[in-house]
Amino acid sequence: MNHAHTHTPHHGAAHGHHEHAMDGQAEILDLDAEVLGEHTASITAWLPLQTAPHHIVDLGCGTGAGTFALLDRFPDAYVTAVDASAEHLQRLRTKAYTRGVEERVRTVQADLDDDTWPDLGSPDLIWASASMHHMAHPDRALRTVHDTLAPGGLFAVVELAGHPRFLPADAPAERPGLEERIHAAADRRQAEHVPHRGADWGPMLTAAGFTVEGERTITVNIEGSRSEAVGRYATGVLRRIHSVIADRLSPEDLTALDRLLDTSGPHSILRRDDLTVRTERTVWAARRI
């Protein structure tokens, strides 16, 4: 997360990935925060909280999209931001300092697939955006979250419905439908490596002892003309997908994708004026009774 991931490295648990594997992902997470910021804010406003939280934990915080949305929404709260990547946490700390909220942020580097988690206190709210599906043992992680929360505390799970789409269906002219074929290849690969992506977290939350108090799906459709960041976001996401599914594409599709990703070429995605960000985000709000 929040977060358009190609699931090569991820920010919820490390699984031995080296820091250089994070190259490019941090920028995508930053763009994700910028482009989807309005929708993230709407989710924080929707949460069925009984009182304003004082201590919040952001699990798999990435570079801070959720952390800063939560700090904005709850000005009297502080956030413990947890991630496996030292690079992501450093970027988050730099942003906190730039925004003047460093006193309200604590960072913790941890692999959430470890048997034991660091002491995170007893937060009133735990937020996990695009991180839970990375867990090798989500049932165990959910029970740990349940036991970490203060009684009456809320757990918010936010997930994207796959990678965002950006191109019209008839694009590019020489290979119409290219993006759908790219996503189909990425979905097949990720079904092998990330089996919990797209899961219904409601029953798993109930099984872990939570009471699910709300579920909401938000449709995202952002015109590229609203933000020049959309072109960079599309380039970053498709570049990450390219890196893991190039061998699964036809030569013709691979050539067309390479042309879109050639930022100095005439067919660069950055030169298009018909981009949109299209995806869905689902949020589950679950309480520890």
Rank of each mutant, 00 (worst) to 15 (best):
R259G: 06
V283F: 04
E228G: 14
T51S: 15
H134Q: 14
R73S: 14
R271G: 14
D273I: 02
T63Q: 02
G202T: 12
T263Y: 00
R140A: 12
T255I: 05
L154R: 01
R106M: 08
V220E: 08
W284G: 01
A110T: 13
P75M: 10
L71M: 11
H7Q: 03
L257N: 04
L167E: 04
E280K: 01
L167R: 02
A26S: 09
P151N: 03
E223D: 14
E103Y: 03
Y78I: 02
A128N: 14
E223K: 14
I182A: 07
D119Y: 08
Q90F: 04
A199C: 01
V212Q: 14
F210Q: 10
E87I: 09
R197M: 09
R226A: 10
L70F: 06
H15S: 11
E174W: 06
Q50H: 13
E87Q: 13
T279A: 13
A4W: 00
L112N: 10
T44G: 08
D72G: 11
D23K: 05
H242E: 15
D30A: 08
A156D: 09
Y78A: 11
A207F: 03
A84P: 15
R288T: 04
D83R: 12
A234D: 06
H17A: 03
V157L: 14
W201A: 02
A14M: 01
P176L: 13
V108W: 01
Q109C: 02
T144M: 10
F155D: 09
V35L: 10
V105S: 00
R188N: 09
V194N: 10
A13E: 00
L59S: 06
E102Y: 06
E223I: 03
D76Q: 15
T80Y: 01
F74R: 13
A45M: 03
S243A: 15
E38F: 03
A141T: 09
E252D: 15
D274E: 05
A84Q: 15
R104T: 03
S243F: 05
E102F: 05
V101Q: 12
V194Q: 15
H137F: 05
D170K: 02
G37M: 09
P251D: 15
V212G: 13
T263W: 00
L142G: 04
S225N: 10
Q25V: 14
H242P: 06
E159C: 10
A33E: 14
H267T: 04
A156F: 08
D253F: 02
R188I: 03
A141P: 00
P138A: 12
D32S: 15
A234S: 14
T144R: 15
T263M: 02
M204Q: 12
Q50N: 11
G152N: 08
H39F: 06
I28M: 10
A229I: 06
G236I: 05
Q50G: 11
G236V: 08
P251Y: 12
I289C: 13
V194H: 12
R281G: 08
P203E: 12
G209M: 02
L249K: 00
T219S: 11
I245T: 15
S227P: 12
G209D: 01
R288G: 05
G121E: 13
L112K: 06
L36C: 13
R259W: 06
H196A: 13
E252A: 15
W284E: 01
T217Y: 06
S250Q: 14
L249R: 00
P168C: 11
A110Q: 14
T67M: 10
A110C: 11
D253G: 05
R278D: 04
A186F: 12
D262M: 07
A13L: 00
H18S: 07
